[in-house]
C-alpha cells in the first residue's frame, strides 16, 4: 500500500523532456512503476514508443541504467544483464543489491517478443517484465497487434466497407503468462495507481520472474482527448474489459471489483477507434464484445473463487 505524499519524496527516475505525445499513458505507467523501487534498478526496454521517446541522443530521460537493444528481445536482454549480475556478485565484483525491470509494448511483448519473454520467464531470472499495452503498434502508426481488441479500427485493420475493423478477439496474454507458473503475474492500470504500484512492489519482492500487464491507452490510436487518458483507463476497469487481478504462486485474486459492472458500449463510444461500430448493421459486434467481456469476467471470478 503506497502513500502518495511519501511517493513524492522518492527520486523521479524518469525525467521530463521525453518526446511521448501529450497525455501518453506509457510514461505514466513507467513513473508509477519506478516509484515502487527501493533498491537500485536496471531497466531494459524493447523498441517502441517508450524507447524512442525517452532516448533520443544525446538526451535520455532515464536516471537509472538503461538498455535497449532491439524489438523482440527486451526479456532476453535483461535476462543477460541479470545473469551477469549473478555472476559478478558471486565473484564479489558487485556488492550492491540490484533489481531488473524489462519494459515492452504490446507489439514487443504479445507478438514479436513473445518467444523471448516466454523463455526468460521459464528460465526463472529474477526480473520483472512490464508490458505497457496500448493495444496496437503505435510507434509505427497504429497497426493491429494480437493485443488489439475486436472491432478496433487500426491502420492494418481499418474499418472498411466490408470488414468492420479487427475481426479477432485479443490474446489474453496475462493468462498465458500465468500458465508459465511463475511466482507473480498481474494485470494493472495506472488510473488505479495504488493497485499498480503495490503490484510492482510485490513483483520486485518475489524471487524469480514476475510479469505485469499494464493497460496504457494511446490517445492517438484510440482517438480520445488527451486529458481523458486516466478516464479511459477507469472505463476499462469499470466495464471489466480490463479486470485488475493478480496470480500469486498460482492463486488467482481479483484486486479490484467494480461496484457496478458498466456496459462496454459507453466506453467504446468514447474512443474513435470504435466509432464505426455504432453505424447501422454493426451493432452485433458490440454485442459480441460485451458477451466476450461477460464470459471472461465470469471465468476470472470463478478462477479467483469470487463468483
Amino acid at each position: 500500500m503506497a502513500n502518495l505524499r511519501d511517493l513524492t519524496k522518492k527520486e523521479e527516475l524518469l525525467c521530463g523532456g521525453h518526446r511521448a505525445c501529450a497525455g501518453c499513458a506509457a510514461p505514466i505507467a513507467v513513473r508509477q512503476a519506478l516509484k515502487a523501487v527501493d533498491t537500485p534498478v536496471v531497466v531494459g526496454c524493447a523498441t517502441g514508443c517508450l524507447e524512442v521517446t525517452t532516448t533520443i541522443y544525446p538526451f535520455t530521460s532515464w536516471r537509472v541504467p538503461f538498455i535497449h537493444s532491439a524489438f523482440e528481445n527486451s526479456a532476453a536482454t535483461i535476462s543477460g544483464v541479470e545473469a551477469a549480475y549473478r555472476a559478478l556478485k558471486k565473484k564479489g565484483k558487485i556488492t550492491r543489491d540490484i533489481q531488473f525491470i524489462a519494459f515492452g509494448g504490446d507489439g514487443g511483448t504479445y507478438d514479436i517478443g513473445f518467444q523471448s519473454l516466454s523463455g526468460a520467464m521459464e528460465r526463472g531470472h529474477d526480473m520483472v517484465y512490464i508490458c505497457y499495452d496500448n493495444e496496437a503498434y503505435m510507434n509505427t502508426g497504429i497497426q493491429r497487434s494480437s493485443a488489439t481488441p475486436k472491432g478496433a479500427s487500426t491502420t492494418t485493420s481499418p474499418a472498411g466497407k466490408v470488414i468492420p475493423g479487427k475481426v479477432q478477439f485479443r490474446k489474453d496474454l496475462t493468462a498465458v503468462m500465468a500458465a508459465h507458473n511463475i511466482p507473480y503475474v498481474a494485470q494493472a492500470v495506472p488510473s488505479h495507481w495504488n493497485d499498480f504500484i503495490t503490484k510492482v512492489q510485490k513483483a520486485l519482492a518475489v524471487k524469480g520472474p514476475a510479469f505485469i500487464n499494464v493497460l496504457a491507452p494511446c490517445r492517438l490510436g484510440w482517438q480520445f482527448d488527451p486529458a481523458e487518458t486516466i478516464d479511459i483507463m477507469r472505463g476499462a476497469v469499470e466495464t471489466c474489459f480490463w479486470p485488475l487481478y493478480e496470480v500469486e504462486n498460482g492463486v488467482w485474486r481479483v484486486t479490484h471489483k467494480p461496484r457496478e459492472k458498466k456496459p462496454v458500449r459507453g466506453w467504446l463510444e468514447k474512443q474513435g477507434r470504435f466509432r464505426h461500430l455504432f453505424r447501422p448493421g454493426n451493432e452485433h459486434i458490440i454485442e459480441e464484445i460485451q458477451a466476450d467481456i461477460d464470459r471472461n469476467w465470469e471465468a476470472l471470478l470463478a478462477r479467483a473463487g469470487a463468483a
Binding site: L4, L7, T8, E12, L14, C15, G16, H18, A20, A22, G23, C24, A25, A26, P27, I28, R31, Q32, P190, S191, W193, T229, I230
Partner: peptide, 8 residues
C-alpha cells in the same frame, strides 16, 4: 502528480 506523464 501521480498522473502526470511528463514529471511536470
Amino acid at each position: 502528480w501521480i498522473y502526470c506523464p511528463d514529471s511536470s
